[in-house]
Simulated scan of single mutants.
Amino acid sequence: MSALRAAKTALRTEVKRRVAALEPEEKRRQSQLLAQKLFKHPKYVSSQRIAVFLSMEDEVCTQEIIEDVFRCGKSCFIPRYESSSSHMDMLKMDSLQDMDTLPRTSWNIRQPAGEDESREEALSAGGLDLILMPGLGFDLCGRRLGRGKGFYDSYLERCSRHPKGRPYTLGLAFREQLCSQIPVGDHDVLIDEVLYEDQ
């Protein structure tokens, strides 16, 4: 294993341990605080086409954010991962009710079925204005520690080739997910900003 991979693996273990120690009430509190921060963020306010991840247990909860995207009449796109590769698309959701009917993956995340071709894919249409980024860890230079599959890195690479250009990328992080420095390689794409408590 390369030194970079070893460093990332060690850091993933450490951050997972810190987040696992968080009480559910504290996760909820930080998630609500970040949602309120986001709603005032100029990039969020001005964005019409927004990609949002459907959060897992160890991530900032995005439910309130998704509700607000629909309430504000913005377009909401969510990821569809292909588990056999690092390919991911962002597909449009029509409503909160639409989202509740989606099948769950082996990771227990809701996403449109592989054979569902009826939805608008963000990059084949008007692109995206803003992507809210999940991650296990973040540092304040825009480096992000993912789960090792490279879904978002390869997606951002595709975004940069879209006529609209790359959307603004905003990581959502619990305070416990902040790291002094995250080891990155050539394929790791930096994000524009990390939103966390105590900024």
Rank of each mutant, 00 (worst) to 15 (best):
L34F: 12
K40F: 01
S86Q: 10
Y81E: 02
D116E: 06
R110A: 13
S55H: 12
E117T: 15
S84D: 14
E25Y: 01
M88N: 03
T105S: 15
M56L: 15
K40W: 00
N108P: 00
E115G: 00
K27V: 01
G73M: 09
Y44H: 09
P79G: 07
R110T: 07
E82V: 05
K43Y: 06
D116T: 00
S85Y: 11
S118F: 02
R110L: 10
V69M: 11
E23S: 15
V45F: 01
T105M: 06
Q111N: 11
H41G: 10
I109N: 00
T101K: 13
D68V: 04
C76Y: 03
A113M: 03
S55Q: 05
S84V: 10
F53Q: 04
R80E: 11
M56H: 05
Q97A: 14
M93T: 04
R110N: 06
D58H: 11
L102W: 04
F70G: 06
R49E: 03
S31T: 13
L34V: 08
R71F: 11
Q32I: 01
T105H: 07
L91Q: 11
E26N: 01
F70Q: 05
E26D: 13
H87S: 12
S83A: 13
K27T: 03
M56V: 13
R29M: 06
E23N: 12
L54N: 03
L91K: 06
F77Y: 15
L22M: 15
T105K: 06
S85H: 10
S106N: 10
T105P: 06
M93R: 02
L22Q: 04
S85W: 11
F77A: 06
M93F: 02
A113L: 05
S95C: 12
I78C: 08
P103T: 00
L33M: 12
N108V: 01
I78S: 04
Y44C: 08
S31A: 14
S85G: 11
R29G: 02
G73E: 09
E82A: 04
M90G: 01
I65R: 02
W107Q: 02
R49M: 05
Q63D: 14
D116K: 05
E25Q: 15
T105R: 06
